[in-house]
């Protein structure tokens, strides 16, 4: 590292240190996959000893796309104070109306150390149609279950046409710019015009005020 330090200039060394610092911060920070709320599906629903909340995204759900479910598990004490349940086991069951015997069960993970009592899971939805979603929260106080339904739309058509169209437009734009530049250079050559002063050689970007 010292050898590397000696071979680098001061500017490069500081840049390297800054990048290292950013990477260190990035590594120290807790990764969170989703921080957007989503569409509320269950709001303050009593489920056994708990009160549950659930949000889904995107809106609408689509087959072959990643779907996201966030669940908040809370408990209300006798004074009406709401507490997050941080050590619950949250199981989410997805049951397709088309194949009710093939339920998919997942365990949601805590969102982050800050979002206490919040759990989430992501999954690529296998098919479209009506989906019955069951959320089961299990903790030391007991078990609570809530359910809701979602309608998933068919898979979106492939987007390669969209990207190909974009690439085509970009290529045409680049060709126009190149052609214009070439014609301009040609015209200059024909008229024997010199380049403007501002484009000749090195020139300070601005004058330093003292």
């Amino acid at each position: 590292m010292r050898c590397l330090d000696r071979s680098l200039g001061r500017v490069q060394r500081i840049t390297l240190q800054l990048v290292t610092l950013c990477l260190a911060i990035a590594t120290a920070a807790s990764p969170v996959s989703a921080h957007g709320g989503g569409t509320p599906q269950i709001v303050d629903a009593p489920a056994g000893p708990y009160r549950l909340f659930a949000w889904t995204s995107p809106d609408p759900w689509r087959a072959e796309e990643l779907v996201h479910v966030t669940v908040a598990v809370t408990r209300v004490d006798a004074t009406g104070q709401v507490f997050p349940i941080t050590d619950a086991q949250v199981a989410i069951r997805l049951i397709s109306e088309a194949q009710p015997d093939q339920a998919l069960t997942f365990f949601a993970q805590p969102v982050s150390a800050v979002a206490t009592g919040f759990y989430e899971f992501d999954h690529k939805l296998p098919g479209d149609g009506l989906w019955h979603i069951e959320i089961e929260a299990r903790g030391v106080e007991g078990v609570g279950v809530v359910a809701f339904t979602m309608v998933a739309e068919p898979a979106a058509p492939t987007r390669w046409l969209f990207w190909a169209g974009g690439a085509f437009v970009a290529a045409i734009g680049a060709l126009i710019v190149l052609q214009a530049a070439r014609q301009r250079a040609l015209r200059r050559e024909q008229t024997g015009q010199k380049q403007p002063v501002g484009r000749q050689g090195a020139r300070p970007a601005f004058r330093i005020e003292r």
Partner: peptide
């Protein structure tokens, strides 16, 4: 909650690192 850990967001961190580095290099050169 306010004293809790920070969240990693590359879409924020990378532009900040880029502009911070550009400024640091320019400042030292000047």
């Amino acid at each position: 909650a306010l004293l809790g850990p920070w969240e990693l967001r590359w879409e924020v961190l990378l532009p900040l690192a880029l502009f911070g580095s550009l400024y640091a290099i320019g400042w030292m050169r000047l």
